[in-house]
Design a protein around this nucleic acid. Structure first.
Lengths: 331, 331
DNA sequence: AAGAAAAGCGAAAGCGGTTTCGCAAATCAC
DNA sequence: GTGATTTGCGAAACCGCTTTCGCTTTTCTT
């Protein structure tokens, strides 16, 4: 294949201008007459010139690379964000350098040093969307840092994440709109932030309608097995329950099995709504929509992060993705 | 935070050696006495020196970046491979530059030019694991190219992908071992390579046992709806069918619903086995294993690709990931 | 012990751009 | 028409590291 040997000085020579003029003409920097600029451009095109991105990065001291720190890249939710971010950044000529860290202090420190050595242009920290606030890394870089799908300990950080309260509201509103009144909620660990805030949001809406949970929220784990367990309890405690809001689709999946096994119909007797929309997210139209759920907006988070990271002035604070209700068979 | 201004020449000065000596000492290249080498190392450590990766890449003409071309990064299977690859490469100090191409000729050409301009060290083409052989891109780069989860038109390319024939064999073997004899197969489009080869592999095993499909293979689409449709047909055509091998978990999901609706028990009356293992892959332990399936080894593909790409001599040919049987409730 | 080979190190030339600075020519002000 | 600006361009420094080459010193060979 044709050797990619055309250098800027080749272009300059061919165009009969100096190296610096050629550089400025192509970059549109400094003062260059329109005629010269155009002439250089045409010459460069004719020769098939492309800037050597390495030389350019070096000269400018900026790498066109974004560092990404993940906690566990194998987490399917992180993966969605990661893939979206990588694709969006690729479209902007930005590479992604991923460090899949255990996120202990030593690991982080090493990753930070390596990222700094690569003169990355920005950092994205992808969390798991749940659990505790994570330590802030913003001050350890002199480039912009955005936290995605996680909340940090420092409110002055830039964060883009799911709007768990809105998710809870959306779920409750939908169930109420469907005429449900004896509503219960099954979710994950009580200390999990996402679980808390989803419960909060839903509760808020119930309260506004003069209602409360038909039985106290069952906190457990983000797992299908917990959905089965909790649903079993709930059916015993509130036999006439008419709706269950589950903190995740996995929990809902377990709950549904138990509800059906009890002889109740879904959604006729008991409406069921989850959170995550993994049927779509993970399966890309291959599986039929079955569970009514709420899409937390992972892909939107990825897009927002990629867009905002390259903005000149990054405003601190938390920005939320807008959740979407996805109606299917169960509510 | 401390300014990362320590340059190699600072180290050289502090160590009382020349710039070139310092470079060689730290890189272990050229002939340097052990004493000097150690002294330079210690000095560098003391100063907290890190190579400027940009300068280094530039000087070496290699970018420490791997270009990745995907067809649709939103495909959940591609995403698994992508995330694995990115994590593995990150551990080797390699960044990933992702171009999510529409894969039409113009788009590809542009991506190729951009990747070349970035002096990437290698290329990974991630396919969708199915459908036709894709055009070979190997000759358009002078760096190594590996095709992942796809097959190209040129057999001399380096390819790492799923072993669809073995997948088929594994499924059939498992069903036979379970005592099943009236086995049918539902799968995707007849021109889909993965579908073909899975069917082939299974058929091979049946033939060796003196059997054939209980009814001709139903080719359709990779979708749950097709699983329902095809299963309905099959139950009518072969009422005493005792096992269904589905080309994907999505198809199996549809088939299972129909089988149960017909009053048959799974797996007592009809065993069901799928392919993909998405219950685990996409949900990371959150959902309970239900469907017996075959893991095609996406993560292994990602690891193999990342490992082999950096090998000095890349042997052409196709390497297959080893599929794993994942036994759960349905077979 | 003398010559040959090897070891250890430094000077300097890149790598391919960007960017500062200065100078000449063109334009402006009055 | 003269001086003050502005415009357009080129020379050259520089980004920080790698690598070639050559020189001096040490070690080996016989």
């Amino acid at each position: 294949m044709a050797d990619q040997l055309i250098t800027l000085s080749d272009v300059a020579t061919a165009a009969g201008v100096s190296l610096s003029t050629a550089s400025k003409a192509l970059n549109g920097t400094d003062r260059i007459s329109a005629a010269t600029r155009e002439h250089v451009r045409v010459t460069a095109d004719r020769l098939g010139f492309r800037h050597n991105a390495l030389a350019r990065s070096f000269a400018r001291g900026r790498s066109q690379t974004i560092g990404v720190l993940t906690h566990r890249a194998s987490n399917p939710f992180s993966r969605v964000v990661l893939a979206t971010v990588a694709a969006e950044l690729g479209a902007k000529e930005q590479a992604v350098l991923l460090y899949d860290a255990r996120m202990d202090e030593q690991d982080i420190t090493e990753s930070v040093l390596q990222l700094r050595a690569r003169r990355i242009d920005g950092v994205i920290v992808i969390g798991t969307g749940t659990s505790f606030p994570t330590p802030s890394l913003t001050d350890r870089f002199e480039v912009p840092v955005i936290n995605a799908f996680t909340v940090t300990e420092d409110p002055a950080d830039v964060t883009i994440t799911a709007d768990d309260v809105a998710i809870g509201r959306l779920a409750a509103t939908h169930l109420l709109a469907g005429g449900r009144r004896r509503i219960v909620h099954l979710t994950a660990e009580p200390h999990d932030l996402a679980a808390q805030r989803r419960a909060e949001g839903a509760r808020e809406v119930l309260a506004a309608a003069g209602l409360d949970w038909a039985t106290p929220v069952r906190f457990g784990r983000w797992r299908e097995e917990w959905g089965e367990e909790a649903a079993t309890e709930v059916l015993a405690a509130v036999p006439d329950v008419d709706a269950i809001f589950c903190g995740s689709d996995a929990i809902a999946r377990g709950a549904e099995r138990v509800i059906r096994a009890s002889g109740r119909r879904v959604p006729d007797d008991v409406a069921l709504i989850g959170v995550d929309n993994w049927e779509q997210l993970m399966h890309d139209q291959r599986v039929r929509r079955h569970l009514t759920t709420i899409d937390v907006g992972l892909e939107e988070i990825g897009r927002l992060v990629a867009d905002r990271l390259l903005e000149p002035d990054l405003e601190p604070g938390i920005q939320y993705a807008v959740p979407q209700l996805v109606i299917a068979d169960t509510a």
